[in-house]
Amino acid sequence: MINTWRKLFSKHESIRAYTLLSPALILVILAMASPLLLMVLTSFHTQVSMMEIDSTLTLDRYADFFSRPVYSTLLFRSIKISFLVTLVTLLTTYPLAYYIAFYVKKNKMLWIVLMTLPFWTSYLLRVFSWRVILGHKGVINSALMFSGAIDEPLSFLIYSQTAVVLTLAHAWAAFAILPLYVSLDKIDKSLLEASYDLGCSKFQTFWRVTFPLSLPGVIGAILIIFIPTVGDYVTPQLVGGTDGRMLSNMIQSLFGRANNFPLGAASAVLMLLSVSFVALVVTYITKKVSLRMS
């Protein structure tokens, strides 16, 4: 018996592979897939009272979601903010990644380490530091008042969607720098030389060679920033105010004080669906664009 097993084990790669993969797959199935499925199921239930849930299947929670404007407003706002964060992060980090990939000769690793180090330090503290920078009695206001530039604190700095976008663009920078740098660094330098040799200017070379070749990194950065930030909770809570409130804050209260698990689950499902949809569209479009470019 043991021998037959051993023989199977040594002869079949896939048996060995799946034995090694099983802990990870079990973890994903038990701690992610089944909870998500149950969450989807719950979104078709009804909260009757504090402790009681009616498990008759109904679409009412989704009807609730779309009949009350606040929910869809928050969903669209979350998507809009994430979109802006992704855009701002990409635009601000691309030149940096480009500089490290093409101009930094010595100590490239040091640059990369320094650029990604802040990412590892507590997310909460980084967001919190923006709160103290932008706040009414915060660093900027106090510095400006001390220098005499203003008499009253600037109130538009904090508790706005702009503050949320700024804070998130700072918090997620490392996730854009790395994929962009990796895809730019991979580009064969002789391709660029070939482009100059064929008469392209620096600008044309960038648009016709460098940028298309860095698209995998751009897609990677878009997906890795856009998807998680749609569900961000800490930033809107600390610097968003009412104007910057996002869907996650609503979901949290539905699972907390409001105690409406089914509606909370429905909101989470809709959030997941919309990010998946956007992610698919982004991948599709960029693939089309890169095909046309090549």
């Binding site: 896939s14 592979a17 799946y18 993969l21 990870a24 797959l25 994903v28 701690a31 992610m32 897939a33 089944s34 909870p35 998500l36 149950l38 969450m39 719950t42 997906l223 890795i224 998807i227 998680p228 930030t229 749609v230 569900g231 961000d232 909770y233 996650s248 979901i251 949290q252 699972f255 698990f261 909370g264 689950a265 989470a268 959030m271 997941l272 990010v275």
Partner: peptide, 29 residues
């Protein structure tokens, strides 16, 4: 590994799914 991409993607998925969704799903279960 057969279904290499699928298994790999599944294991990496928690890296991109908004944490709040995983949190909520775990509360429910």
């Amino acid at each position: 590994v057969r279904f290499h991409q699928l298994s790999y993607g599944a294991i990496l998925l928690p890296f991109v799914i908004p944490e709040i969704i995983i949190a909520v799903a775990l509360i429910v279960i």
